[in-house]
Simulated scan of single mutants.
Amino acid sequence: MKMSASENDKSNGETLSAILEQTALEAGCAIMQFYDGQCGVFAKPDQSPVTDADHAAERIILAALARALPGVPVVAEEEAAAGRLPEKLGARFVLVDPLDGTREFLARNRDFTVNIALIEEGVPVLGVVYAPARNLLFTAANGQAEEVETSPDHMITKRRPISVRRSADALVAVASRSHQTPETAAWLERHNMEHCVSVGSSLKFCLIARGQADIYPRFGPTMEWDTAAGDAILRAAGGMTVRPDGSTLFYGRGSGKGVAAFCNSHFIAYGPAAAQIVTPV
């Protein structure tokens, strides 16, 4: 069996997945220094907030990726916002959101994450999502998903495999805490979703991956770097992310130019327990 490029990567004896885990931990540690102290806040051209923590985390991640994956294009949120995008992606590239859930970070709740995902042929094949304020890391590699506990100083202490739940007496949905839309609310009502958990950032994907929820409908704007890492974890745990018509959500195949090329379509992320309410192709 032919191995994917991600399975063959080595750097100083470490697998790429281990490097991405360590990178996310280091970025999370830097973010928490700002969370517990002073942090400058600025407005992007679209008026969304960006902080010193976003920039510090992104610098750490970009430096690590340059060492681990030389020559592989990287699309990172703050670099993209500054107009710095790879000239050509190719079949293999990395998506980075250094601080997903900046509004949650500023509100001082714990629903913010570091997201790093490796994309191959449009599919997220490797991903890490680290919630540093929760000391929880989620990772996907080689078709397996894990939940990793960390210490207060962001060292790995325990890890366990996770998977989606196959059935449920009552489906549980997850929805955005800061970006709820009327379209999403209408979808939830139309499908009689009585149980809905509001949570920020890519943790929504992770709740499905660990079997705590079943479906995440998103009928509102998102970018590929917002979702790719969480999507990788969900797929490795046995779930899937599709467009509303049931077709698979792919990455790096947008039709726009510049940053607009990385806008997601609306999507539904789900586990097997909710498969019956997702529209097939």
Rank of each mutant, 00 (worst) to 15 (best):
A168I: 08
D9K: 14
P49F: 10
G252L: 12
R103W: 00
E194K: 15
C29A: 14
F34Q: 09
P221D: 08
T102E: 07
G239M: 02
G239V: 06
V172C: 09
A5H: 12
A81R: 03
G143L: 07
A27N: 13
D36E: 12
G200S: 03
T181S: 14
L171G: 04
F219P: 11
G230M: 06
H154I: 01
T248H: 09
I116V: 15
A261C: 09
A140P: 07
R110Q: 08
D153W: 04
T241R: 12
K10Y: 06
E58H: 05
S11D: 13
A30T: 07
S247L: 10
C206F: 01
F105I: 01
T241V: 14
L126Q: 14
S265D: 11
E149R: 02
T222W: 07
A131P: 03
A261L: 07
D97T: 11
V174D: 00
G83T: 05
T23A: 10
V75F: 06
P73D: 10
G122I: 05
A170Y: 02
A5Y: 00
P86L: 14
V172G: 12
R253L: 13
G252T: 09
R134S: 02
D231S: 12
E14W: 12
R108C: 03
R190N: 13
S167F: 15
L25N: 01
A91T: 14
L95I: 01
K158G: 00
P132S: 02
H179L: 08
C206M: 02
A228S: 14
G28R: 05
A30N: 04
V96R: 07
A80P: 08
R253C: 10
E87H: 05
H55L: 15
L171P: 01
L207P: 05
M32Y: 03
S255P: 04
W225F: 12
W187P: 00
A269T: 02
T23G: 14
A173V: 00
A131W: 02
A269I: 15
H154V: 02
E146V: 07
V50C: 13
A275F: 13
V50L: 13
N142K: 09
A141I: 00
I208P: 03
V199I: 15
Y270E: 00
L99T: 01
T51N: 10
C206G: 08
L188C: 11
G127I: 01
D36S: 13
A80S: 11
L89D: 01
Q22F: 04
G256V: 05
E183R: 15
D36T: 11
F93C: 13
Q212Y: 09
V148H: 00
S198P: 07
G40E: 05
I233Y: 06
